[in-house]
Design a protein around this nucleic acid. Structure first.
Lengths: 230, 230
DNA sequence: CACCCCTACCTTGCATGCAATCGAACGGGG
DNA sequence: CCCCGTTCGATTGCATGCAAGGTAGGGGTG
């Protein structure tokens, strides 16, 4: 997570944010000059960013025909959650013996903060939840100390990632999800890998149910393919 | 597997081959101009290829300081095999219901061919084994019909992939490995996912033992860090 | 003699220009 | 009226030029 200093990296992160944030709709055309203007750089770093995003699976590039924001089907989304259901519990269990008290405290803080901004009431801010959630899971991934597993997870998740994640959670599922984070912290503190693994399994299953339902709604809602550039 | 038509794609595949084939040693410096000359293109497609290879994990890029062929430790290699031990058996089991007789025949042909060129004797050709093995596993991945799992696997494996894979197999392990391919074909024909999964689990465990041993030998042999460009 | 600084070269990073390719609109023929 | 060939426009793909940053080597000083 180094500060992007080169133009290419800025373009990369900016584009990622644009796509993940939903500002560039799925299937939207990504013209090089247009993006270059928008980001204030030349086409070269934009091309590099598009290339890397294509490798990540966030955009699809057809030679001589430009790039588009990647789309995914409900089946693909379900596949991703199948995979998360296998990998993330393992990863969580691996994190348990590596978690030092300071690490657990950090995760605890994140979990509590998520409960604050995620609970219904005046302080609710669902947009703030997304980065907190990423921070929580990233921290957990780092604790597992398993680069290959992390790479596999990143490769599988990046594409259909939780685009505008928590906006699709119903209240009950969201409460469950937030509770899971707290329970994972508890399992870490207890040093119980099996417990942590089980909670994460529930966590993914819960998320899966939410996302699949949302995807179904979305695809039926936008049955007519839309064509927009921004 | 489309024929690379653009220079960037040719550079990408060429570089991959160069690295995977061992012509570019791990840690070797990858100068843009040098590679451009070597591949007969300009620096632009080379840069793009390096970028994408960095995303794949085959090379490491430090801003303003160029790219090097990625190196990996024994621990990382073990991590990769941990992951394969989880993912590939699942994937194999998924392939079972999707495998049509024609597909099984194709895999059967590959397995038999591998036995031919892999068995000790006058016809032995270990170099020919590598592409056959890749074809076999790729075919299996395709049959599973699980893009996310395939992406995760590719992300995890690509880096420390089977570089000059079978050269490190001792005779007994190689025989086991070849037998596994045949047995997987049998499990597919029988339509038994559990059988297929079990064989693949053994297959990965066997490969793991071989690769880890080879990596240990190699790292102790080249204890002094070498610095070479080609 | 060791350490530090300064300079010069090399490499990367980015912008821009030109050629090739693709898509679409237009006109002609069936 | 519909279909096909052709031309024009737009966009990508690649090469090259220039500037910024980094590294290595040499000279000077403590």
């Amino acid at each position: 997570m180094t500060r992007p200093v080169t133009s290419a990296e800025r373009a990369l992160t900016a584009l990622r944010e644009l796509i993940m944030g939903g500002e560039l709709a799925a299937g939207a055309r990504l013209g090089e000059v247009e993006l270059a203007d928008r980001l204030g750089v030349s086409r070269t770093p934009v091309r590099e960013a598009l290339s890397r995003l294509a490798a990540e699976g966030l955009v699809q590039v057809v030679p001589n025909r430009g790039a588009r924001v990647a789309t995914w089907t409900v089946a693909e989304l379900e596949g991703v959650f199948d995979l998360r259901a296998v990998l993330e519990p393992r990863l969580t269990a691996l994190a348990v013996p590596n978690a030092r008290p300071a690490d657990v405290d950090e995760l605890d803080a994140l979990a509590r903060r998520m409960c604050e901004v995620g609970s219904p009431g005046p302080g609710q801010d669902l947009d703030a939840l997304v980065p907190l959630n990423r921070a929580f899971h990233d921290r957990l991934v780092a604790l597992a100390g398993h680069p290959a597993l992390a790479a596999a997870l990143a490769a599988a998740i990046h594409p259909p990632i939780v685009r505008r994640n928590f906006l699709t959670y119903d209240e009950e599922s969201l409460r469950r999800s937030l509770a899971h984070h707290g329970e994972i912290v508890a399992a870490l503190r207890a040093g119980d890998p099996d417990w942590a693994r089980a909670v994460m399994t529930s966590h993914i299953a819960n998320a899966r149910a939410v996302m699949v339902r949302a995807a179904r709604l979305q695809t039926t809602a936008t049955a007519t393919p839309e064509e927009e550039t921004a």
